[in-house]
Design a protein around this nucleic acid. Sequence first.
DNA 1: AATCGACTCAACCGCGGATTG
DNA 2: CCAATCCGCGGTTGAGTCGAT
Length: 303
Amino acid sequence: MGHRCCSKQKVKRGLWSPEEDDKLVKHITTHGHGSWSSVPKLAGLQRCGKSCRLRWINYLRPDLKRGSFTAEEEQIIIDVHRILGNRWAQIAKHLPGRTDNEVKNFWNSCIKKKLLSQGLDPKTHNLLSSRQRASNKLACKYSSSSPSSQSQHGSFTVFNITSHAKDTTTTTNNNNNNNTMMMNPPPPVVTFSHQSPNPNTTYAQNLYGSSMDTPFVSSSSCFGNMLYESDPCIWDDANAVVETFEEPRVDSLPPAPQPQQQENDDKIDMDCSLMEGGTGSFDLGLLESTLLSAAMDDFGWNF
DNA sequence: AATCGACTCAACCGCGGATTG
DNA sequence: CCAATCCGCGGTTGAGTCGAT
């Protein structure tokens, strides 16, 4: 076995020792990482480049924020995951100081269970069928007694959110003197004002509440045009949604697109339920900034 | 005190896309 | 073009930890 990148070398595996960390930090802070495959040799480490890269990105980077996720961060993860699916690296870009690995772990250990306990499918964010919910009762039971942060903010809603993309011109990049140390540009800052949801309010009511008095198409079209002009393929599916959209009955919610499929198709699809309450309970600012930044990454746009 | 099961999270693996020769 | 290599990503694993019994 062994990594392809370092199959010829004898490499150490497993947890990193403080000495190894020290070597890696010293090397990267003085020389930058350059080519990761050459880092182990230059830094005097018996590790493969891949392992060094991972250690640096997930643990040693100076701009990492340690500690547990805040309620705000958690909400951002849920919202962006709803849009992008399991694109952890993209999601992490909305959380300065957090890594994709951290976000992924947090999702798998906490958020997933919390969504299940809310009767929501963590993949689609849609309401689980009664059968699925029944099979998840165990998870609910677990989750309700979970010591995780949920107790701090009670039940949450994916929808009762307002968000505003803020000034994105503020830059935090202070590593200009070493381009190998450059961090990602700061993501759009997104703020939320949480509303305390009524725990008795059903998901479906949130999703297609009677407040939706603005036609779906018009509420989304301004945003749609923006991306459509840039890349029509993004909106292939969305158009399909628009064409087939009709106000669903509570018991026949349309399935949200599967994140996996989205990835395979390399498209950014949008769940029509996302457009719920086009009149305001979901602020398009977040959606806009998220999709736009994802699109910029996917298509290599630079402004 | 010992055991066990659940949970967390750092690290690894394999894959696919990009780059290079 | 094509093969080799590099890089980044998402999925998975397993050692360590913690709480319940």
